[in-house]
């Protein structure tokens, strides 16, 4: 795409003075969206960040307290556990969804029989909301009625698998449900990417005598870079938003061992009626997104000259 744009870009910079007035109708028409973006997103974000330095309770108030809210936030056990949980969930979910999604897509791409049936089965979980997913997995992982109960019923009495009742591994119980829900969708994106690979590539690699696995790793995956970026953005935004799955599946329990940052924000804003604290927490979430996003965006868009 970038080579197609370059010559036009050069032409545009030559006539820069008139650029503002070109296509005035289109610009006028996009004004509402630009305003929405500025006022709602940028304005709302600025407002939230500003109020995180106040001691707003139920209603926003200009009562400046400096970094008090942040100090309290980082001293709070619940927040620390939330952040830790999100990191574990995030890394595992990112890696496993990508690996599983790509593997499933590659397997489906080997021209197997009943491909569309498998595709439908794998994609089905994605049609369910996180609430339904969470509830279903809460039942499946219930030690008395779910998986553990069934296996014990078969005679394996010592079988223990109760992630939702064990504070140390509860986040992996949530992870299982998250993977079940999200992998199918990533698989479909990957499959679309694989279908976009020219058949000639495969022929060429066969002529050169390169193995199938090696072709995937060395040739196909590098060619699918844009697809991976799309999948990455979708998965990452899902991770940061992680909230409803936890609410439905464990509600943060046992104790506070499966709390996540988004739940902290909601609880402190509305249940604890402490807007300042909730805003501070959401500002920290934004900050972490920016820290991850900026270097990536720089590499992705800033380094255009190299290619």
């Amino acid at each position: 795409m970038s080579h197609a744009e370059n010559p036009r870009g050069a032409e545009r910079s030559a006539r820069r003075p008139r650029q503002l007035f070109r296509n005035l109708n289109a610009k006028f028409a996009s004004l509402p969206m630009i305003l929405t973006a500025l006022v709602v997103f940028v304005g709302g974000t600025a407002w939230t960040v500003a109020h995180s330095f106040t001691k707003s309770r139920l209603l926003p108030k200009w009562d400046f307290v400096g970094f008090d809210q942040y100090e309290r936030l980082w001293n709070s056990n619940r927040w620390m556990i939330s952040v830790e949980n999100l990191m574990i969930y995030g890394v595992c979910s990112l890696v496993l969804t990508m690996v599983l999604g790509f593997t499933l897509a590659a397997l489906l791409d080997r021209k197997i029989r009943f491909e569309s049936a498998f595709r439908t089965i794998f994609l089905y979980p994605f049609a369910l909301s996180f609430i339904v997913t969470g509830l279903a997995w809460q039942w499946i992982l219930n030690p008395d009625f779910g998986l553990q109960g069934v296996v014990r019923g078969w005679g394996w009495e010592s079988f223990t698998f109760d992630p939702l009742n064990n504070p140390d591994i509860v986040i992996f119980g949530v992870l299982i449900a998250g993977l079940w829900q999200g992998t199918g969708f990533v698989m479909v994106i990957m499959l679309a990417g694989l279908r976009g690979i020219d058949e000639d590539i495969w022929k060429a690699s066969r002529v050169d005598g390169i193995g199938v696995a090696k072709t995937y790793v060395r040739v196909i995956i590098p060619m699918m870079r844009p697809v991976f970026v799309t999948a990455l953005v979708i998965i990452a935004s899902g991770i940061i938003k992680l909230y409803d799955l936890v609410v439905a599946q464990t509600n943060g329990g046992p104790g506070i061992s499966s709390e996540v940052p988004a739940k902290y924000v909601i609880n402190y804003m509305f249940q604890a009626q402490n807007l300042g604290q909730g805003f501070a927490a959401s500002t920290m979430m934004l900050l972490s997104v920016i820290i991850v996003l900026v270097p990536w965006a720089y590499l992705e868009f800033g380094g255009k000259k190299r290619g």
Partner: peptide, 12 residues
């Protein structure tokens, strides 16, 4: 809410 968080952690 803070006390509840503490107690939830304490009990579990």
């Amino acid at each position: 809410t803070q006390i509840q968080d503490l107690l939830a952690e304490f009990w579990a």
